[in-house]
Write a protein that binds this DNA or RNA. Structure first.
Lengths: 102, 102
DNA sequence: TTGAAAAGTTACTTTTTGTAACCTAATGAA
DNA sequence: TTCATTAGGTTACAAAAAGTAACTTTTCAA
């Protein structure tokens, strides 16, 4: 990879948000905490990638994973404060898509 | 690919913006019209992908390509009205990255 | 004893990316 | 004349990421 004059934080942000499915997963979580299968059903993403993305987002402190030891087990994902802070950006994209696409 | 209840326009928006480099290229073009090599130097993206992305963005009416028949040839890329309309979203991401990353 | 549900994981194939070399045309230097 | 440079790409090939489907584990209910 080349060197760049680009702001490293924006660059990092785009490495996260610019990954396939990531922003749609966050959009989905804006609705409130959701279980793995709920997210999987709401989006055309496979379990493999959903699992991978949620792990990345958890590692970055954007999403929180909470396990409820019920039977059968229940796992809920929700946005952290850092994740909720992305709502403005996501809503802007949503609005743009309404104004300018098709 | 599975069926989904997801808004097809947001989905389409993320298919575009969620592609690697796309948003950084648009961010770069917010500075004003720029030549191919300028963009290539500003970002850690290769000529192959820059060319591919610019073509996609042009096809979507987000970026405009203008050729000046000088010697050597000059080609400038700029945002269309549709492209400029993304500024709000991009600035939100930029601000979030400043507030929350590292 | 068979089946179902939740939350993943594994194995394998297809697409995308990354990297580097190459192309064309014009100009200018040695 | 031959070589090098500039601009704006394209090609070929290897490496990484994504898509798909089958499989796993635990627990309970039929």
């Amino acid at each position: 990879m080349k060197e760049t004059k680009l702001c490293p934080r924006l660059s990092k942000a785009m490495e996260l948000l610019g990954k396939r499915w990531t922003t749609l997963i966050l959009y989905q979580l804006l609705e409130g905490p959701q279980r793995f299968n709920e997210i999987e059903s709401a989006l055309p993403v496979s379990g493999r990638l959903l699992s991978e993305r949620l792990k990345e987002l958890e590692k970055e402190g954007i999403v929180e994973r909470r396990v409820y030891s019920e039977i059968p087990i229940r796992v809920e994902y929700s946005l952290t404060e850092k994740g909720v802070a992305l709502e403005g950006a996501i809503r802007e994209i949503e609005q743009w898509s309404k104004d300018w696409l098709k």
